[in-house]
């Protein structure tokens, strides 16, 4: 398609925009519009869109501006809270990562150098007047699961539960 602009197009557009078409239009220009395809298109399209706009804007059910104002305030506040909370969340993640790293390092160290210092835990049940073995299910006792495994496992579980509960409460 070749873009051929008519020299009268601007004048016609101006008349249409000011509402002067066709009443305030010179007869020569009107005659030109009937013969010029570009200007004819412009008049046809502009009038159709102006009528459509008038029709569409007449029957719009608008919500109260106060509702939108309130929604915007809420969103702004939420964004501000998120902005403030972002470094705190970062710090929490960093702290958790450091703790996990420490635990892993400690465990690795202990595995390498032996767990001899933990031997006193194995002596604990014998030192109690109450025999804790009596409380364990016989299946556990038979499988040979010692307190050496159970106590650190329970402690880790308690620690992780505490962290999870803290993070959940903090998020709420």
């Amino acid at each position: 398609m070749i873009l051929r602009s008519c020299p009268f197009e601007k004048e016609v557009a101006q008349l249409l925009a000011q509402g002067g078409w066709p009443a305030a239009c010179a007869p020569e220009l009107r005659a030109h519009v009937t013969s010029c395809r570009s200007c004819g298109d412009l008049v046809l399209v502009q009038q159709a869109f102006q009528r459509a706009r008038a029709h569409s804007t007449a029957a719009v059910p608008l919500v109260s501006p106060g509702v939108l104002w309130w929604r915007a305030q809420l969103r702004r506040r939420q964004a501000a809270v998120e902005r403030v909370g972002r470094p705190i969340l970062g710090a929490q993640i960093f702290a958790l990562a450091v703790n996990l790293l420490l635990v892993v390092t400690f465990l690795a160290y202990q595995v390498r150098h032996g767990l001899s210092w933990l031997s006193w835990i194995e002596q604990l049940p014998q030192s109690f007047t109450l025999h804790l073995e009596a409380l364990w299910p016989s299946a556990l006792a038979d499988s040979g699961m010692s307190l050496l495994v159970l106590i650190p496992a329970l402690a880790t579980l308690a620690l992780l539960s505490g962290v999870v509960v803290y993070l959940a409460a903090d998020r709420q």
Binding site: A52, R53, S56, T57, V60, L62, P65, L68
Partner: peptide, 10 residues
């Protein structure tokens, strides 16, 4: 809002 909402909706 009163002046702009209707044209925007259209």
């Amino acid at each position: 809002y009163q002046r702009s909402a209707r044209p925007l909706w259209a």
